[in-house]
Design a protein around this nucleic acid. Structure first.
Lengths: 126, 126
DNA sequence: TTCGTTGCAAACATTTTGCAGTTTC
DNA sequence: GAAACTGCAAAATGTTTGCAACGAA
């Protein structure tokens, strides 16, 4: 992690991500914070998302319609993506899945650092 | 599936995807076929990838460094993505994973159509 | 002859970046 | 005061699209 000062806007981005379970995109975050931070720029949102991600504070959980979607809950869980409306829903699966996945042997991999399991379909609001 | 004529270039794209296990990007396909099809255009590659995908002939298996990666082997398997070099490796996991995943209950989903499990890390060539 | 397919280039959308000014420590 | 952070706008990137010509049936 590179040295880092306190930043009011980074804090706001992180807290917004913590407060929602909608797994927002950069644009959604920008529009949500803009009323409270009128001088916020989209570039700052992108820069801070990258920074928070490299810190391990947040994760990119999916790319929906070409937009990266983020989550501040970094506990092991998975996601369901609605192909119609783009909604991203948390999936807290049974213990056995991480166990089995962790034991999966992968020919050609030196080190497996993480995995991402995404379900696709249509949600109950569509 | 919408009505469709025979197309020599679409055929070539599909056969190229069948013949490799590198899970290529549109650009890689374009550059590979360009010598044999000098008048091939990148737009045609993109159009045919979308078409083949909507036909179910191929699948998008991952987005690596912002590039969609495709696979013509549509049997149930998973992938490992090297975060350093971008290599995508097939992962043929044990029977139990699909079983358990198929049984996962997802609150908020009406219908689960598919899932995608991607591992990340570094490969043995990096 | 009809309609799917293509090359080409322009358009598009998301994300990144250079720079000069501001904030944090 | 040094270094991190930011707004702004321009650039970069991967992908899509309009159109006129071409090819398949």
């Amino acid at each position: 992690m590179r040295t880092q000062n306190y930043s009011r806007k980074r804090q706001a981005i992180y807290e917004l991500l913590l407060s929602t379970d909608t797994h927002p995109s950069a644009d959604w975050i920008y529009n949500s914070l803009k009323p409270k931070y009128p001088d916020l720029s989209l570039g700052t949102v992108y820069r801070n998302l990258k920074l928070l991600e490299s810190n391990g504070a947040i994760k990119s959980v999916a790319v929906v319609d070409g937009c990266e979607r983020y989550d501040a809950r970094i506990s092991k869980h998975s996601h369901f993506v609605c192909k119609k409306c783009g909604r991203v829903i948390d999936v807290f699966f049974t213990e056995s899945i991480p166990d089995i996945i962790d034991k999966t042997y992968i020919d050609g991999a030196r080190e497996v650092e993480s995995y991402n399991l995404i379900f696709y379909g249509s949600c109950d609001k569509c």
